[in-house]
Design a binder for these strands. Sequence first.
DNA 1: GTCTATAACGCGATAGAC
DNA 2: GTCTATCGCGTTATAGAC
Lengths: 195, 195
Amino acid sequence: MARTTGSRAAITGPLVRRAALQLFARHGYAAVSMRQIAAAVGVQAGALYAYTPDKQALLAGLLVEHMEDLLSAWGDGPDAPPMDRLEAFVRFHIAYSLDHADSVFLSYMELRNLNPENHAAIAALRGRYEDALTAILREGAAAGVMRLADARLTTMALIAMLTGVTNWFREGGRLDRQAVADHYWGLVRGAVGAG
Amino acid sequence: MARTTGSRAAITGPLVRRAALQLFARHGYAAVSMRQIAAAVGVQAGALYAYTPDKQALLAGLLVEHMEDLLSAWGDGPDAPPMDRLEAFVRFHIAYSLDHADSVFLSYMELRNLNPENHAAIAALRGRYEDALTAILREGAAAGVMRLADARLTTMALIAMLTGVTNWFREGGRLDRQAVADHYWGLVRGAVGAG
DNA sequence: GTCTATAACGCGATAGAC
DNA sequence: GTCTATCGCGTTATAGAC
């Protein structure tokens, strides 16, 4: 068994990523310096380069990690009726977005700071997530329980609507999470012609 | 009549703002240097300070200008029936967002780079725009032609959905602007219970 | 694995000539 | 109004000690 006493790599690594995520989301990738990240973790700037080859790889790693976590968290039940699956998707997407607001915001805002390869990788992962909703919508339309003019457009529209909850929702505000999710589900149900 | 021959202030000023808007939208405020903006305009960096006291005032000016233009472009017809006004809002918002994609993106992404006073000014202008939609929804609900659980939540949800069109719409793609607007209007109609 | 020190460069902003 | 030149500082990234 390897001796790790005295080494803090196992905890410093995640700390670096957590600090970078928070700072990037709050101030923007370009506005955050490696020194700020290091200070948040409690190490010197040079030490960060033991955990990432450079600043952009740090960002790309955060976004890949986020998309993979999102995809694995969405556990669809492919045998359930389409309306049940749609409701589950709506409630899942809202809850996940609110629980991971920093990651969600970052993965919408900082795509432009990725090089082409990293950008393509993230876009592909996002496409798989969108496909999950599109599949539900197509099944619902085929089963006659939803009325859709265009499944792909509806996918993009609904995801934008649901993700937008992060722009205004505040814990302890007029509506709690349950009420917000209920209201969004009502809007979605109407939008897919199942009001 | 003042002599202006030899002075290019009248054209350089707008050029500076146009270049800054494009670069800020493309790369992010923090990632763009005054030297880059100057190069895009064709002057030296120092010359920019004849048009703005500093970099942040340049950003704030762009955002105020955008919100004021948006508000004045939305010419509501308060006497029309609520469903007609809602349809007009949907089509206006989509068209305006696609026509001013850089400004729209910037005013969502770079609020955090404003100081508190500038931030409050922009938020107030945005609130007035949101109020316009909320008013339409409340009238529709009162008239019994819309069914809404919560007018303010619906406002935020619909604006996020409509603005999201800028994330995926591409000129010359599968759907043209007219088709996109028609489909979004169908979604909105269903969402407000008037499907 | 983390430190100090530093290389190499770009930044926002200003001063003063024209 | 625009230029050149410059100040003072911050940046990413690396080198080498421990």
